[in-house]
């Protein structure tokens, strides 16, 4: 099973049981088809997405598992952050439907051919998709929620140490001056 992959693709050995493979968006469906027919990696177990905002790309990871569940192969596919559609795998793997639905909601990636891209966990969300890096959780929380009252007496410890040192210094200086 490995020989086919070694032969046809540039396989990255991450660990003895985990491999990775870079594909482009256009190659994805074809590669998946080839791999599922020629090797035993025929199950999609996870669909991941990583936001590399500084490089202006999403990296999608299609995690394949073999029937024996002993090895994992990750197909990595980078797509531009603004051109955000992918072909859906719903016809190839039934479980891809819900995974794509989740990524659509969390990252705003469209999946062509998936009919179920409606609300997943969020309801009536109009903001930018929350898992994108530009969505600032802290800003959102500060805008929507209050801190508990009575915590205003929080002190910055570094400032306090400085103040104390200055006070100690002046205290030292005062007796010496007097």
């Amino acid at each position: 099973m490995m020989s086919y992959l070694e032969e046809h693709y540039e396989l990255i050995h991450k660990t003895p049981r985990l491999f990775a493979l870079h594909v482009t968006r256009e190659q994805l469906l074809d590669t998946l088809h080839q791999i599922t027919t020629h090797t035993s990696f025929d199950t999609l177990s996870q669909l991941t997405c990583t936001d590399w905002i500084e490089e202006e790309r999403f990296e999608l990871g299609y995690m394949l598992t073999n029937a024996l569940r002993s090895h994992n192969l990750m197909l990595k596919c980078s797509i531009a952050r603004d051109k955000v559609t992918m072909p859906s795998l719903a016809l190839l793997f039934a479980q891809a439907e819900v995974m794509e639905r989740e990524l659509h909601e969390m990252f705003g990636i469209g999946f062509e051919g998936n009919e179920t891209l409606y609300d997943f966990a969020l309801e009536g969300w109009c903001d930018i998709p929350p898992m994108r890096r530009e969505f600032d959780t802290l800003a959102y929380v500060n805008a929507h929620y209050d801190f508990r009252e009575g915590r205003e007496d929080n002190l910055d410890v570094k400032e306090e140490i400085k103040k104390r040192k200055a006070a100690a210094k002046s205290a030292k200086e005062t007796p010496s001056g007097a």
Binding site: D153, L155, V157, R164
Partner: peptide, 18 residues
């Protein structure tokens, strides 16, 4: 966690008094 000032220092090594 908030760091708050204490009135009297129990510990001379407490540099910040918090």
């Amino acid at each position: 966690i908030d760091m708050i000032a204490i009135d009297k220092d129990k510990n001379p090594k407490n540099n910040s008094g918090c």
